[in-house]
Design a binder for these strands. Structure first.
Lengths: 355, 355
DNA sequence: TTCCAAATTGTTATCGATACCATTCTGTCC
DNA sequence: GGACAGAATGGTATCGATAACAATTTGGAA
């Protein structure tokens, strides 16, 4: 049995307060709603004194601007949408952070979605996002369903594709060639004297960047006259640390004399290295292993991991900057491809003749 | 010189199409706008035949529902806000994933923000979020500015605090006691025979969960009669892998006979272990090290890391479920504290007499 | 056949801010 | 003193959907 004089649910009172509208603030101050509206925008012409009185009233009453109402009449939602494959992957969350940071103080809100590496889920997300009328949208990769492309086209908003160079860009692109980046790594290691190259990646083409890295690997090994590359496909992308460990076992069973193994990402490379150590093998003494992405872990772990450093944060930041240009400046410069940097980072895990 | 019959900028045409409104779809089909509106909701009463015709028209015209207009009249924004300290931390991105998954097919959109472990940034984000009139909000931790509390109170929406048990909960809570969890780990290791305990954490109280872990550590070491704990504070939270490595060096310089080091998170523990190995020390032979959070890395790395497993995904999922209950069901059950599980995971890094 | 309940569709007002244009006020210059 | 530019403020229509209620149709039951 509840006590009778127990206080009533606090939210009842609160719910009333919630109804507070701009007109009521205006009445309280003794101005028109329009003036209150102007007081909230820094560029509008309101006398300093009036603005001060309004803001005091806003504080006193606890009024909070309602953007959904505003965006309807101003026809500007104040949203930017961004889709990434996964938020659990630190490369992509760095990109998301870059976007968020670039959006700070622009008055734009980020609507973030993750596609789980699926073009179908991407399509559904794009539709869900467009229902909020974003002023621009940032996508990962260039592989989209036909319907997704049609929706984006119809939406008439700037689109930025990131993390790779699509064959048929929709609009703007901020990224790099995953194939060439992997190629660069192969050449760097070949320069060190490695000859028998293995590769570990996922089983399907879901992860288009992963596929591009593999094809860059295969092409370059071929070009260097180092025979066909030894490829192990293991697990649905994105492959985990654990799967990296399992894959390297398969690879070494099949081609025991492999000298160096390149992995689709640092995570699988790390798993591979740890599995080798667990089995008593020496990295890089018995086998050299390299990754891709330069995750934090790769510079810290022992042995530290040779990899390709990608400017994940910069991809996000530049994508957002491009988008802002297009949204505000009217995109006068037209569609463009912005190449972002990458570089080979040689570390202990591929030290030739290393400990 | 551009070719004259080059197609004009596609976006011009697209921008026109964008203006498409529900009324135009209605006219095209020969029904009222209201009927089109009903066709978009699955519970509304529209004949199957009419809905089919409408949806065909929607497809043909490429109409996309405008939720911002709808939310104004229905007074339901369709948003849920969630604030996490960082999206680069896989623990919190797991929580974000749990929230997103629980929201799937509810028609609710997640507005995600990251506070960077700052109560001031949290306050600004809460205000920004409230301007979108979310139907509920999920926060991390129980430490908020006064103004933030006031705004939340006024907003009159359900609030769920996660990841810890606040002393003064606002509303609902989904979390666990970080202090008790750390205490459990200390006891488990004391049971194994360890006596001289060290601790590595950040320098400030910004990370309240980190502070709670430290106090749980200190209290328990004291209770067990194992003298004052040896604490190294290093770096602004969240401390990185690298800082974990630096901290363990400090700790061992100051107290060389330390037997086991507990770290505020697996990331710093990993950094500490790698630094020890780099310096030729054996883990756990020379020094045992444990973390907190059970990140993927901890089960994979060598030696694998003893830690506290936390149900990060479940925290997000349950927080969202609680919130949905409160939003839809009217929160009839009142405010509640939902405790989520955690458990000690003993691994190689604290093997007594280990290799 | 008559009548009523349920299913289906239509009409109108409205959500809360902002765009657009009109109006008032202030100060300055000739 | 008059005129006028520019700043400050107000009034009204409007953004595009949905709530609320009204009207119409349909299918049986009486």
């Amino acid at each position: 049995m509840k006590n009778e004089d127990e206080p009533k649910d606090k939210r009842v009172k609160a719910a009333d307060a919630q109804k507070l509208t701009m007109a009521e603030v205006a009445k309280y101050v003794g101005v028109s709603a329009m003036t209150v509206s102007r007081a909230f925008r820094q560029d509008a012409s309101v006398s300093e004194e009036t603005r001060k009185r309004i803001m005091e009233a806003v504080d006193a009453l606890g009024y909070v601007l309602d953007l959904s109402a505003g965006s309807l009449s101003s026809r500007r939602s104040g949203f930017i949408a961004a889709l990434v494959p996964s938020i659990n992957n630190s490369n992509f969350s760095d990109t998301a952070r870059g976007i968020t940071d670039a959006l700070e103080n622009t008055g734009l809100q980020l609507l973030l979605g993750y596609t789980d590496y699926s073009a179908e889920k991407e399509e559904r997300l794009i539709e869900a996002m467009l229902r909020r009328r974003p002023e621009g949208i940032i996508l990962t990769g260039g592989s989209h369903t036909d319907r997704a492309r049609r929706m984006l086209d119809k939406a008439g908003i700037p689109v930025v594709e990131t993390w790779e160079i699509p064959e048929e860009p929709i609009n703007h692109v901020v990224g790099f060639s995953n194939s060439e980046a992997m190629s660069l790594l192969v050449r760097a290691l070949a320069n060190q004297g490695y000859r028998r190259f293995g590769y570990i990646g996922g089983t399907t083409a879901r992860d288009t960047r992963g596929s591009q890295r593999r094809s860059g690997f295969l092409k370059t090994v071929e070009e260097l006259g180092l025979g066909p590359g030894r490829v192990i496909s293991f697990g649905v992308p994105p492959i985990t640390m654990e799967q990296g460990g399992q894959a390297v076992v398969s690879l070494l069973e099949r081609w025991p004399d492999t000298e160096v193994v390149l992995c689709v990402s640092d995570l699988s490379a790390f798993g591979a290295i740890m599995e080798c150590k667990r089995r008593g093998m020496n990295v890089p003494g018995d086998i050299a292993i390299a990754g891709f992405g330069d995750y934090e872990i790769s510079s810290i772990c022992h042995p530290s991991i040779t990899t390709i450093n990608v400017d994940c944060y910069g991809i996000g930041r530049q994508a957002a900057v491009r988008l802002l240009d297009a949204v505000h400046g009217g995109g006068s410069t037209g569609d463009e491809i912005t190449l972002t940097g990458y570089r080979v980072v040689l570390r202990e895990s591929t030290n030739r003749g290393g400990a």
